[in-house]
């Protein structure tokens, strides 16, 4: 069976689920960030697959946009993490419950 759109969609869905599991399950905010990157990667694969299906390169352009947004998100998110670590000495999200107490 030739590899078609469905294969790539299934791969992207599986990757997205792995990333989602990471965000839900892990308590280390650094690894939660990496899981978000996995989910963005899954979305990129869908863009590229539909681009291949329609023979239109617009999907590639928007993958580039996702790259830029991912870079911005990583820069800001990690800066916030460093700041939180400076104030609270932890990156474990279970310890960051000031508003719940």
């Amino acid at each position: 069976m030739n590899v078609g759109l469905t294969h790539y969609l299934a791969l992207a869905a599986a990757l997205f689920l792995v990333g989602m599991t990471g965000v839900l399950v892990r308590r280390n905010s650094l690894i939660m960030f990496m899981s978000i990157e996995i989910m963005l990667s899954a979305a990129n694969i869908v863009f590229a697959a539909y681009s291949r299906l329609h023979g239109d390169l617009a999907g590639h352009v928007f993958v580039l946009m996702v790259f830029a947004v991912a870079a911005a998100e990583a820069a800001i998110g990690l800066a916030i993490l460093v700041e939180i670590y400076r104030l609270r000495r932890t990156v474990n999200v279970d310890d960051l419950n000031t508003l719940m107490e």
Binding site: Y8, I45, A48, S51, R52, H60, V63, F67
Partner: peptide, 14 residues
């Protein structure tokens, strides 16, 4: 995967 999808530029940038 990008290279398989005929997207060499994306593969390099990835």
């Amino acid at each position: 995967i990008f290279a398989l999808l005929a997207a060499p530029f994306l593969a390099i940038l990835q």
